[in-house]
Each structure stands twice: as C-alpha cells, then as structure tokens.
Computed example of a mutant assay.
Amino acid sequence: MKSIKPGRGPSAMGAVGSIFSAIFGIIWTIAAASMGAPVFFWLFGVVFVILGIVQAIYNFKNATGENRYSEFDIVDSTEEPDPLAQKLGLERENPESEAGEAGDFRYCPYCGARLGSGFTFCGKCGKRLPEEP
C-alpha cells in the first residue's frame, strides 16, 4: 500500500490558519459575552477555539514531525479493485500483468513492503535495497 502525505509547507500554513481561527473564536466569545448574547453564541466561539487548537496541533505535527500522517491511502489494483473502473467496465482482466507476474515481486528487508523487481530504494521506508541475486 502506498500513501500520500501532505507537504510540510501546506501543513505549516494550515497550522497558521488554525491559530487565526482560534483567535477568531476568542474574539467572538468575548464579543458575545460583552453584548449579553444567549449562551448558544458563546458556545459557537468556544467550538471555534477548540477546533482551531486541535487543527493547529495536527498541522504543526505534520509540518515538523519526522513521521507524518497520511491524508490518503492509495492501493495497487492488485490489492484492491477500483470500484469506478468496475462499474464502467474498465477493469483489466489480469491486473497483475501491469507489474509483472506474481513471482516478480520482492520484499524490503527493513520494513517488509512489497516491491517490484527493479527497485533500488524502498518506496515505503526509503532505504537502499540490497542488490538482487
């Protein structure tokens, strides 16, 4: 299985945007309380603050962390069929033929990821693979 991870720049911008939404929530809550608004309006601001803090922590961790979270998981067609391709009748008869026969795969000795026979580096952990025998 392959995964797509968000870039560090977009994650950092998401953290900054989340901080701004938390500040907006604080201003909203203070303004609603000072105007004598019903409690519902105060809670709306508190929800903004909580969501802003949670999103800021998530995005900051993705921007600075060594092991980032995956936003999407992408699987090979040999692992899981594409439902849209099946519905439209575009599914290939033998999906394993795209990457060679089933015996042409090898596994990373460091993380166990399944790889094709021509790989020099692991697509999952990024380590250089030993030469094929």
Rank of each mutant, 00 (worst) to 15 (best):
L51E: 04
G45W: 00
G52W: 00
T29V: 10
A33N: 09
F72W: 11
L43G: 11
A56F: 09
A37H: 11
R68S: 09
V47L: 15
R68P: 07
T64N: 09
S34G: 10
V75L: 10
T64E: 05
I50R: 06
Y69L: 12
A37Q: 11
E66N: 07
G45K: 01
N67K: 00
G65N: 07
W42P: 01
M35D: 13
A63I: 04
S70A: 15
A33P: 01
Y58P: 01
V39Q: 09
L43V: 10
A31F: 14
R68E: 02
V39W: 08
S34T: 14
Y69K: 12
K61E: 10
A37N: 13
V49C: 10
P38D: 14
F48T: 04
F40R: 07
N59Q: 08
S70D: 14
V47R: 04
F48R: 03
F40T: 08
V46K: 03
K61Q: 14
N59W: 00
G45H: 02
G36F: 05
I50S: 06
I53A: 07
G45N: 04
N59R: 00
F44Q: 06
A56Y: 03
I50V: 15
A63C: 07
F44Y: 12
P38G: 15
I57L: 09
N62M: 03
A56V: 05
F44W: 10
V39I: 15
V49A: 08
G65K: 02
A63T: 02
V47N: 11
W42T: 15
S70G: 07
S34F: 09
N62P: 02
W42V: 15
A33S: 11
V39G: 04
I50D: 05
V46T: 09
F41A: 09
M35G: 13
L43S: 06
F60V: 01
A32Q: 06
E71D: 10
V46P: 06
E66V: 01
W42E: 06
F40D: 06
I50A: 13
A31S: 13
V75A: 14
S34Q: 14
N67Y: 00
A56P: 06
Q55Y: 12
Q55R: 08
A63F: 01
G65P: 03
S34I: 08
T64L: 10
A56N: 03
A37E: 12
V39A: 11
F48D: 03
F60S: 01
I53L: 13
L43A: 10
L51Y: 08
L51R: 03
N59I: 00
N62L: 01
N67R: 00
A31W: 14
M35N: 13
L51N: 09
M35H: 12
A37L: 13
D73H: 14
G65L: 04
K61D: 05
V47F: 13
Y58W: 14
A37I: 05
T29H: 05
D76Q: 12
V75P: 03
E71V: 11
L51Q: 08
A63W: 00
V39K: 07
G36M: 09
A31R: 14
L51T: 05
D73V: 14
A32T: 07
I53G: 03
I53K: 01
F44L: 15
T29F: 04
F60P: 00
F41H: 08
T64H: 03
A63R: 00
I74W: 06
M35T: 10
I74E: 12
A33G: 10
V47M: 13
P38R: 08
V54C: 07
F40P: 02
L51W: 07
Q55K: 10
G65I: 02
